[in-house]
Structures are given as structure tokens and as C-alpha cells.
Design a protein around this nucleic acid. Structure first.
Lengths: 356, 356
DNA sequence: AATATATATGGTAACGCTAACATATTCAAT
DNA sequence: ATTGAATATGTTAGCGTTACCATATATATT
């Protein structure tokens, strides 16, 4: 592989001149520029970006630390980040780890690789590697611990001016940039939407996790929405489940067995809603004639059921875009600290009936 | 940020000794080791992996060049790659580009960043940036051009011992490692499965692209399967569509209007099948009692419809795993050239009726 | 003609690390 | 005691690039 030195020798100039040409920086006469460019082409010269990084102290690479790329929402976020990044000549280096220890290890590796900024998306991080992934109570309990132990690293990064953007969180020690979706507001919106269509008997398929994280927010949002719209919450119209189609299906069947005066159901996400829709159809119920369903996420699942699901659409692309630009802004030291809250939207499908 | 030199000074040894400790390489007395480790902790030393790479000439980073991370199949492949990578201390640097020019540019950047290996996954690459993404005829026409123009780069990489693994392709100039799924065999399997259940009137919802790439393979596979099972192909039982739910829905409606003696439909992928299922349900048809449906991909879409779709399951995780390990094997120069073909499996749902 | 400014090029050192070699020191085996 | 290997540490140089400063020439301004 040709080096800058060889290119320089090949056309009788100094390495510095070659450097000026390839970086388009400083003064170079048109004649030498042409000469150098010809040599670059002839020798098939590739600038060694590692060597450049060593001296410039920047890599044009940002680290993304996350858990499950399998989850379409996260992969959409990452997709947005990479798309924004490529626009300004940045690349992303991706690390997926599922438990606290390996996440911290990954974070350190990324930092040691001299990334210019770090975006963390630790949703679904697990306490330990050996936890049953289907034990959701336990399996989401790692996030807090991660942030706690990450705090020291974040402090250090702060000092060395490496911005850290946390997606899906806020108010953490030593982290100053946040992007998150207002899930609670989304849940409120879902209930309001149903109430607005004349529904009073509103059911809820919620995740088993009800206290923390995204599921906690949606859980609280449901109650808030019910109160706001003056609807009564009946325990018989609620059922818990996991984040799978199968679980949503089973929970909906249980719910339909015990519910009373229930005309609509808010599902904590589209996956659950898809399962719920299947259960309803399987019992010969028509959607939305016999039962209205509203989901949450605006994921591709909401399109996969018939009729298309009305859902509270979160904006993964927007989250990724904002996260990346926040990181870039912080690099330029434009801001000291910032928090960006993305508001969801109602994405109307055909799964909610107007019964007014 | 502390350097190795500072750590060395701090405990009165040479940088080499510190290097030996942090790399666990060569002889170091237990006493000095302890001393150094204490200094490392105290100064919060982080080895600069960029500097290390410059001298070792390896980065423990592999490049992944792809188009649309939004497509769950691709993101599952990437997920598998990262999971395999992290196991042996590698990271992946991800680049998503949608057209030929920017893909080549991204490839060059990755190479210049001194990646140890490159995995390319150029499915759905477009000829130019301004092509309408929904114009599938045009939008998939870029792959060939990409590989053609990539060939020079591949040759160069070959010389510098940087392995290139192409996913979803085979027999390309200057590329020696391939991992791909046998989609044609999958289509044959789908038809055979239906025939085995007693179906003779088998319909086909195929993609508008019928000559090249994955759609071409599935298209050919359908005919091969029909011939193999002795079923007759009726043009009235075929309809073309795009890779969207909506398009699958519309195509299925057209198909149901014109078909004759059709008891089952093979859909070129699960997205189309999900749309088709919705259309069938929307017409009051029962699945699988009135019409059997089989999809292709084994994607999460196949779970999102009721009843759960029987589908030809491709193995994205396996593809990613094999691709990464192929790259690693090539790095160790264990092999000269290799081609790994992944065979799909039938994933049984409840969307196909046994009419024997 | 004299001075200031813009343009063009080169030399040196350094970024932080490790490979390769050199040199001690220890310890066991003769 | 003598040798040879194993153990332990240090020295030097270089990976490929650019920052910084120095210098030379061309062009504009008075």
C-alpha cells in the first residue's frame, strides 16, 4: 500500500504538499496539484485514516452502544444515525451487548478506539449475561445499574470533551445530552383518541413491567389518560403480557373472557396489538365493528394486521437524527447540555370505530 | 488523557513494560505488574487503540457495507455479525449507502479506516441517488453495476490480504468469499410443500423484478417447483407486486378476481403474504379453509398475521454468523476461496390446509 | 522602487504505541 | 564454578500522517 511519502517522491515534492492536495487545505499551485493527483491515481494511493487520526485526534467515527438490533425500532434509530452520519462524512461503529458488564466493556473499547462521540441506547439491557431473556421483570432491570456504573465513564468523557448522548433516558449523572420519546404522552393520546371516538369502556393490555422504562411510562399514561377523559378504569378490562405476538394473543383471549362493557383496547405496543387482533379475529370478532384496537409504536407490525392498526406512532428516525445532530452540535461546543423530547403522533389506521 | 509514557514514568518503568502488562504479553514480574496495574487505575489510563493500530497494522474492526438497515432481514444479519464479532473482541463499522456511487465511496472510506475485513451486502442498491425508491425495476438495477465497479477495489484488497465477503452473491470478479441463501431452492420447497398437502391449483404473487437477484431466484424456483411436482402453471393464477403490504393486498385482490381453481398461493415474501392474507380476510375468506398461503423469509411479519403464516424461513442469523466467521478464517489464511450456501427451512404456521 | 500581502513549498517534530533487538538478572542443570 | 535457558526490563526506531514554523516566490499597493 502506497504511503504519502512514496507519492511525494514519485512526483518530486514533499509529503506536506501531497497532504495539502488530498486534504484540499492550504496553498498548492494548479500545476503541482495536477501532478500530485496523477501520482495518487497511478500509485493507487489511499490515505491511512488511522495515521491521520493519531495526529488530528479525531476519527470521524461515532460509537453507538446498544442492545438488540433485532428490534426494528432500534434498527430504525441506528439506520437514521448512519444516514445522518454519512451525510457529513462520519461513520458509526456499532456495538451490541446485552448485559451490564459487557456493555461497559464495549463502551470502553469504543472510547479507546477514539470515537468522536458516543450514543448509548441501553434499552433492554440485562443485569447479567445469564438471565433468562424472557424474564422481562429481571431482564430490564439492568438499565439502572448500567447508568449508575457508566456514570464514572461519562464524567471522564465529559472532561475530555467527548459528548455522550443517551437515547430514551434523561436526568442521569454526568450525562448532558438526551433524546427521548414521550411515551407517557403517547399513552395519554391513545386514550384521548379512543374517548374522542366515543369509547368509554377502554381496556388495556400492558406489559408485565409497570414501574420503569418505556413500559412504566405507558402504564402511567394510560391511567392519566383515563382520568383526563373521565373514563373509569376497571381491573377486569386490564391484562398483562410480554412483548411478543403470542403473549398478546393469549392476554387478549383472557381479557375478552373477563371484560365488561369494553369497546376498545389500548395495547402497550404494536406487537401486543397484533397478537390481540389475531385473538379477536380468531373469536369471530370484527375489527373495528365489534372491538376497537389501538397500538403504540407505529412499527411495521401495525401494517401487518388487517385492518391496518391505528397506533401511536413513535418516531425512531427522528430520534436517531436528533441524537446524531445533538452529538455533532456538542462537538462544536455549541451547547452545554440539552434534552430533546420527541412527541409521538397518532397514525390512523382502520382499527378504531367511531361510535359517537 | 494519560499516555503509556505517563503511566511508565509514574511507576518508574519503561513504556515497554507497561505495554507488556496491558497486553499480557512477554515477561513481567508479578511485582511490577501489580505496580503498573495500580498506576493504570490511578491515572485512569486508556490505551489508545488508534496508535496501537498504526503500529500493529490491525484494527480489530471489520467493515459492513449495506443499503437498508430498515429491512429487518438485513438488520438481523448485521445483528448476527456484531454478536459474533463481539465474542472475539472485534467491532463493526457500519456504512449504509443506497446508490452505486455513494456505496463505492463508503467502501473506500472503510478501507482507508484500515478495517481488517469487509462484508458487503449490496442488496437493493440503486443505480443513482435520484431514482424513485419505489421504482423497483430501476431501483435494484444497481447491484450489477456496483459489483462491476467494485471489482477493481476487490482486486486491490485481495493483494493487500483484506478479505471481502459478499453476502447474497456468488461468482464475482476478484471476490473469493461468498455467503448466500438458496432462494430458488426455497421457492421449490414452498411449491413442494403445497403440493404435498394436496394442492394443485397453486398461485403465485411474485415481485415485479423477475430476472435478477432474490426475486429472480424465487421466480425461477416457482416454475421449477411446479414442474417438479407436475402442477400446471396458469397465468391467471399469477400476479405481480412490490415489496409492500399494500401492494401485496392489491395484488391478492386482483388475483382473487381472476384466478381459477386456485387453492393455495405462494407469495414471494412474507410482506407480500401479509398483504395477501389481509385481502383474503377482507373478502370474507378463511385462512386456510378457503385459501392456503405460504410466504418466504420467516420474518417477523409471518407471525403478525392470523393465523400464523407458514413460510420458507431464511436464516439471517446464520448468514451473518457464517459471513463473519468466513472473514475471520480468511484473515488467518486458512482458506483460499469459499462459498457457503445456506439452505432455507419450512417454518410451519397455520396458513396451509391439508386437502388430501 | 519599496513594502506588504498572498501564494507556494519544505523541514522538523510529534501523535501514542509496539516490534525488534539488546541487555541484565535469575535459576536450574551439569 | 560454568553453562544455558528462562525470566525481566530497557533502548531504539518507526508506523503514516499532519501541525507548526520557516522560507521562497509572485503579485498587489503605495
Amino acid at each position: 500500500m502506497a504511503t504519502i511519502e512514496e507519492v511525494a517522491r514519485h512526483c518530486g515534492v514533499s509529503p506536506m504538499t501531497v497532504s495539502r492536495v488530498i486534504n484540499n487545505k492550504g496553498y498548492v499551485s494548479p500545476k503541482t496539484r495536477k501532478l500530485v493527483m496523477a501520482a495518487v491515481k497511478e500509485l493507487n494511493y489511499r490515505p491511512n485514516l488511522i495515521a491521520r487520526s493519531l495526529v488530528t485526534n479525531k476519527t470521524s467515527t461515532i460509537g453507538v452502544l446498544m442492545t438488540r438490533l433485532e428490534n426494528p425500532i432500534y434498527s430504525l434509530i441506528v439506520s437514521a444515525i448512519t444516514q445522518e452520519a454519512v451525510k457529513i462524512g462520519y461513520d458509526i461503529i456499532l456495538s451490541t451487548s446485552s448485559d451490564v458488564n459487557s456493555s461497559l466493556k464495549s463502551a470502553n473499547t469504543l472510547i479507546n478506539k477514539q470515537i468522536d462521540a458516543l450514543i448509548v441506547l441501553p434499552m433492554e439491557i440485562r443485569e447479567t449475561a445469564d438471565v433468562d431473556p424472557d424474564d422481562f421483570e429481571k431482564s430490564t432491570r439492568g438499565i439502572g445499574e448500567f447508568y449508575q456504573r457508566f456514570s464514572d465513564i461519562a464524567k471522564e468523557l465529559r472532561q475530555s470533551n467527548l459528548p455522550v448522548v443517551a437515547i430514551g433516558a434523561s436526568g442521569l449523572d454526568n450525562i448532558f445530552y438526551f433524546v427521548y420519546e414521550d411515551y407517557e404522552a403517547g399513552a395519554v393520546m391513545a386514550v384521548e383518541y379512543l374517548a374522542d371516538k366515543g369509547h368509554k369502556g377502554i381496556g388495556f393490555l400492558h406489559h408485565v413491567v409497570t414501574q420503569t422504562g418505556i413500559w412504566g411510562e405507558r402504564y402511567r399514561g394510560f391511567f392519566k389518560g383515563m382520568e383526563k377523559t373521565g373514563c373509569t378504569v376497571y381491573p377486569e378490562n386490564m391484562e398483562k403480557c410480554l412483548d411478543t405476538i403470542e403473549s398478546g394473543y393469549e392476554a387478549m383471549n383472557k381479557l375478552l373472557d373477563k371484560c365488561r362493557n369494553m369497546t376498545a383496547v389500548y395495547c402497550a405496543n404494536d406487537i401486543i396489538a397484533a397478537g390481540a387482533a389475531s385473538a379477536a379475529l380468531g373469536r369471530g370478532l370484527k375489527i373495528p365493528d365489534d372491538i376497537s384496537i389501538i397500538g403504540h409504536d407505529g412499527s411495521i407490525y401495525s401494517e401487518a394486521v388487517h385492518p391496518r392498526l391505528t397506533t401511536v406512532s413513535i418516531e425512531p428516525y427522528e430520534i436517531g437524527r436528533q441524537a446524531f445532530n445533538l452529538a455533532m452540535g456538542a462537538l462544536k461546543e455549541e451547547r452545554e447540555a440539552e434534552e430533546i423530547i420527541i412527541r409521538p403522533k397518532i397514525l390512523e389506521g382502520k382499527s378504531v370505530r367511531n361510535i359517537k
